[in-house]
Write a protein that binds this DNA or RNA. Structure first.
Length: 577
RNA sequence: GCGCCCGUAGCUCAGUGGAUAGAGCGCUUGCCUCCGGAGCAAGAGGUCGCAGGUUCGAAUCCUGCCGGGCGCGCCA
């Protein structure tokens, strides 16, 4: 960004480094339409909810507003295992008041759930608190274990919508920055979550290998090859000197040709960095290919807009009347000199993507939010529904060291690359720390904490719980037995853990719908904590056989779910640390 | 000036209509004959930026302010 200010993030993506965020990538807005989740309701909690729904009907109320009904473990343990606000929502439709209706609901559930329900009570304005029996816990664990690794995932993989997630797309004029690591972690994790939810997902990187910045790269390389300073607006990083040395005849070469080779090399490095980071793109889309031929896709896109009557000529330039679609200004498509703008190419690119998918998700940097309105306007002008393009805006990331927004950079003009960061804290910590906060919050990444290989570091804490589960199962030495039919009374820690496991499908759906991988981090952390509490309270090795076997099954289910969660984050789940 | 995001514990942040607002870090105090102490437990710490409004119920929704970040090119 040629015009961004200096300051805190300047060493991440600073004008003086010449590192540019991907162009054109703006801000955020949340279309009402979301990618549908392909999976059907399933799992123990859904069974309960189905029973609740039946009870609502049996008690004479409408289920029209049932999607507003919650059924979840209350914060306060004395309120039972699950609490529902159903009566508060539907009582009116039965001509009843909430407390009275909750009584009816309780009685109905008592009948339908039998031994699974130990007791119930009506509380407050009309909450119904349920206390479940060990029978429910046992059968729930059974169900979770039967589903195995796919618990919470779509019944039919790939039956959902086809989604293209475009992310990173950083200009190939320099190495990937640490900030790019946030985009990469987010986009990839979101893609994994959507895949797990049954969608067909393609990860795509838009390579801005055309336009003025590529030319500037060529000029900069040539200048360096001749031992000169780079031109104003050039790229001054040391990597340009490396490129100058690497590219044969760069001192006397044609700027475009030199630039092309430079871009090729840099794209290769970006690819390698991302691969190291665990991110694989399905498609690297070259902007230059949009400009090929006289009859290019950019020209076609402009023609299409013209046919739609959405363009006009002024001052020798061709404009899109984007104000017709909510933008605050009209935008130039073709400059008076005849060259298409970046925007025009981006429209062609999005037209191409729209033809290839049901839903588009673009992940953009926060400094591009001003670009959102025109992009949506363009989609609409093309005759498409703007909701099909979803723009997710990533806020910035700062690296913090020693309690300060740190000078990790050695000197002015340097910046922290993603590779530098990975050298410092490793892939697992980097991905976790990049993901654990919501995309619309600016984050400070604490390098000291991220480096820590102890329980103070959440990512190691979660991995530790996983390794511990593996270890104790191994130590018991009887494999993973079936859940015994005769059970001793369950410990509160066992029940708490099973409730958590059972809540996974719902949590996952939430993360998918809200495009919120950070929820998976939060879930994994709580799950690890609750597993650890169970491990502390319920001895496995040396316990009576039926208790031991039940607990092994539970530990194994927890281990599986921790591993699944970490996989969705792109973090490893080793059996030993 | 206009637009987008953010404002919750000392710090970094979860929590997009439910009951006494949570986690991690930091701080205080305990716990190793005990399946991994790379651990566990307890505690202190908050006018959810401010003011109105909607609701049986608001950190959450609406309006207006204040503060911070970012953006408003025939750049990408």
């Amino acid at each position: 960004m040629s015009n961004s200010s200096g300051g805190i993030r300047s060493w991440l993506a600073s004008p003086t480094t010449g590192l540019e965020e991907d162009p054109a990538h703006g801000e955020h807005l949340r279309p009402a339409t979301r990618v549908a989740c392909a999976f059907d309701m399933q799992g123990p909690v859904d069974n309960l909810k189905a029973a609740l729904r039946d009870a609502v009907e049996a008690a004479g109320a409408s289920t029209d507003a049932f999607d507003k009904v919650s059924l979840e473990p209350p914060k306060e343990a004395s309120f039972g295992d699950f609490a529902t606000n159903a009566a508060l929502i539907v009582a009116k439709s039965a001509g009843s008041n909430p407390r009275e209706f909750a009584e009816r609901l309780g009685a109905q559930l008592e009948q339908s759930l039998g031994a699974q329900l130990t007791s119930w009570e009506v509380a407050g304005p009309g909450f119904l608190n349920l206390t479940l029996g060990d029978a429910w816990y046992s059968s729930s664990l059974e169900e979770i274990r039967a589903a195995g690794e796919s618990f919470g995932s779509a019944d039919q993989q790939g039956e959902g919508e086809k989604v293209i997630v475009e992310f990173v797309s950083a200009n190939p004029t320099g190495p990937l920055t640490a900030a790019g690591g946030r985009h990469a972690a987010y986009g990839d994790s979101l893609a994994r979550i959507l895949e797990f939810s049954g969608n067909r997902v393609e990860r795509e990187y838009y390579v801005n290998d055309a336009g003025a910045q590529v030319n500037r790269l060529g000029q900069s390389i040539i200048a360096r090859a001749n031992g000169e300073e780079v031109p104003e607006d050039g790229y001054s990083g040391d990597y340009v000197i490396e490129l100058a040395n690497e590219i044969p005849d760069s001192a006397s070469g044609d700027p475009d040709a030199v630039a092309r080779v430079g871009v090729e090399i840099l794209v290769g490095r970006i690819k390698a960095t991302l691969e190291r980071y665990g991110v694989q793109f399905d498609k690297w889309f070259s902007e230059a290919t949009l400009h090929d031929d006289a009859d290019s896709r950019v020209t076609k896109a402009c023609d299409a807009l013209q046919r739609g009557g959405h363009v006009f000529t002024e001052d020798g330039a061709l404009w899109l009347r984007s104000t017709d679609f909510g933008d605050d200004k009209d935008r130039v498509l073709v400059r008076s000199g005849g060259q298409p703008t970046y925007f025009a190419a981006d429209i062609a690119y999005h037209a191409d993507k729209l033809a290839r998918a049901d839903q588009l998700i673009d992940v953009w940097g926060a400094d591009h939010h001003g670009y959102m309105a025109r992009m949506h306007a363009a989609v609409e002008a093309l005759g498409d529904e703007p909701e099909r393009l979803e723009l997710v805006i990533m806020q910035f990331v700062n690296l913090v060291e020693g309690g300060d927004r740190a000078q990790m950079s050695k000197r002015r003009g340097d910046f922290v690359t993603l590779d530098d960061l990975l050298d410092e804290i490793g892939v697992d910590a980097a991905r976790w720390f990049m993901l654990q906060r919501s995309h619309d919050t600016m984050v400070d990444l604490d390098l000291d904490l991220a480096r820590e290989r102890s329980a103070e570091n959440p990512v190691y804490y979660v991995q530790y719980a996983h390794a511990r589960a593996a270890s104790v199962i191994d130590k018991a030495g009887v494999g993973v037995p079936a859940i015994p039919s005769e059970l001793a009374e369950l410990h509160d820690s066992e029940k708490t853990l099973i409730r958590r496991l059972a809540s996974w499908p719902e949590e996952l759906a939430e993360a998918a719908e809200r495009r919120a991988p950070h929820r998976i981090c939060a879930f994994a952390l709580v799950l690890a904590q609750e597993f650890t509490a169970f491990y502390r309270d319920c001895r496995i090795v040396g316990a009576p056989d039926n208790e031991r076997d039940f607990r092994i099954a539970l530990a194994d289910a927890a281990k599986t779910q921790i591993a699944t969660a970490l996989t969705l984050l792109g973090v490893s789940a080793p059996n030993e640390l």
